[in-house]
Amino acid sequence: MKKIYPNPAAALEGLLFDGMLIASGGFGLCGIPELLIAAIRDAGTKDLTIASNNAGVDGFGLGQLLTTRQVKKMISSYVGENAEFMRQYLSGELELEFNPQGTLAERLRAGGAGIPGFYTATGVGTVIAEGKEHHDFNGKTYILETGIVADLAIVKAWKADPSGNLVFRKTARNFNPPAATSGKVCVVEVEEIVPLGSLDPDTIHLPGIYVHRIVQGQHEKRIENRTTRKKEA
């Protein structure tokens, strides 16, 4: 089966529908599937629920889908850098389910691993625990969180081979592997597609079994918070 597609729109062909749940990789603007997000914007798919650690910034990343009002609900841990998000949320136009960052990552991992729920101490005694089943193990209280299985996972990797084996780069890995595994279908965008056999099998971060479609493209890779130090004289 051929996994390589010529462009992001082709890679998403037949996968998008209104009201769907999409899991997206990325942390801030680092390692986000920016080409696939733009293609979803162009496709105009509506009423999306998106599980993603962040919601992009105004006009870039997932922020673009907020501008076009394609998002019904976000499942995120931190949305601080997005004025349009705040506006839509505070006016009640956008639903928001806050998940602690590690709980969101584990929900995606669990969903992809066939684990429907897991207990965690994270959030016990906070609003996050309200309405959730509590259970004590060895004298400590935990809450039940559920795995997420997404209709579609969109992720960004550094390199792929034609079989879908992926290698990520530095902290751009972040939510991409757990998001990828949570998808019933996973589409990945990469900077480079390398020939079969050129990736050392011992260094593959995510095996191709999780990857259904691959598209290569140019990435802007915007930096959100450029911080430097001066060279000492």
Binding site: F27, C30, F168, K170, T171, I223, N225, T228
Partner: peptide, 24 residues
């Protein structure tokens, strides 16, 4: 490097002992 940031989204650098991993 846009692929190398900390949790505050600031650009940072790696050290000889650095290891990378996913969010889970």
């Amino acid at each position: 490097d846009p692929d190398l940031i900390n949790a505050g989204k600031q650009t940072i650098t790696e050290l000889p002992q650095t290891a990378y991993f996913d969010s889970a």
